[in-house]
């Protein structure tokens, strides 16, 4: 699914070079659920940006679904992001002053999906995250947890190969965090490949594999035999009301 070979990201500060990532080799298989952990500045966000084709590595080769991403133009990258990657950000990154539905429709808009189908698919995605009753609410009328669920709906509406979540629970309380993890777990069970960045072990324990970063290098990679199960009952209309 994902293969990184000798990936480095180098920032030039004055005359000196700073390695945000140093010769990373990594492979993530189909339908895996991976959490990336590490202290601030360890390179995990840079890693996510490169995985999401938002940023280009300085060195190395990145194969996404068999395609060498390093050689693509910015337009091709935009198309790739649109078709294969779903993003969930810590700060939600939803468009202000618009409704939940309009936000979820956004990737479909750029994919050129017709209005009616777009609406249908956006509604399905919102139902999946338990927000059917909030589709026409404006963002400021939604709670943090609900906004993050809109963001997840947006990430999965295009049926991407991989969902990248950069600290999706960073701004949420523990109960809401668990709700979000429950949604991600159910997506994983349905067959999605999910990578999420977090620095909370509690959150990481809901996933199947933990990769640890330190100073731009991978310092640990372990499988979780018995992941925690997030309370699934919050998904659905009842969860939406909470």
């Amino acid at each position: 699914m994902l293969r990184l070979q000798g990936i480095s990201k180098i920032y030039k500060v004055g005359d000196s070079e700073f390695y945000a990532l140093r010769k990373i080799n990594l492979e993530v298989g189909e339908a895996d659920f991976v959490s990336i952990m590490g202290p601030s500045g360890s390179g995990k966000s840079t890693m996510m940006n490169i995985l999401g084709c938002l940023d280009k590595p300085s060195e190395g080769e990145y194969l996404l679904d068999g395609v060498n991403v390093s050689v693509l133009t910015s337009n091709e990258l935009a198309e790739l992001r649109n078709r294969k990657i779903g993003f969930v950000f810590q700060g939600f990154n939803l468009l202000p002053r618009t409704t939940a539905l309009e936000n979820v429709e956004l990737p479909l808009l750029y994919a050129g999906v017709k209005t009616r189908e777009r609406r249908q698919r956006a509604l399905e995605a919102l139902e999946l995250v338990g927000l059917s009753s909030r589709v026409n609410h404006r963002l400021k009328e939604l709670s943090g947890g609900q906004q993050q669920r809109v963001a997840i709906a947006r990430a999965l509406v295009n049926k991407p190969k991989i969902i990248l979540a950069d600290e999706p629970t960073g701004n949420l309380d523990s109960q809401t965090s668990e709700e979000i993890m429950a949604i991600l777990q159910s997506l994983h069970e349905a067959g999605s490949t999910i990578l999420l960045v977090t620095h909370e072990t509690d959150i990481a324990l809901y996933t199947r594999r933990i990769i640890r970063f330190l100073d731009g290098q991978i310092s640990g990679d372990e499988q979780i035999i018995a992941p925690h199960i997030a309370r699934a009952h919050v998904v659905g209309e009842k969860g939406a009301a909470s």
């Binding site: 938002l54 910015s74 992001r81 990154n93 956004l106 750029y110 994919a111």
Partner: peptide, 11 residues
């Protein structure tokens, strides 16, 4: 930035 992340091209 959000639009570009969602697949908007420069055009």
């Amino acid at each position: 930035g959000i639009r570009k992340a969602m697949g908007a091209k420069g055009k």
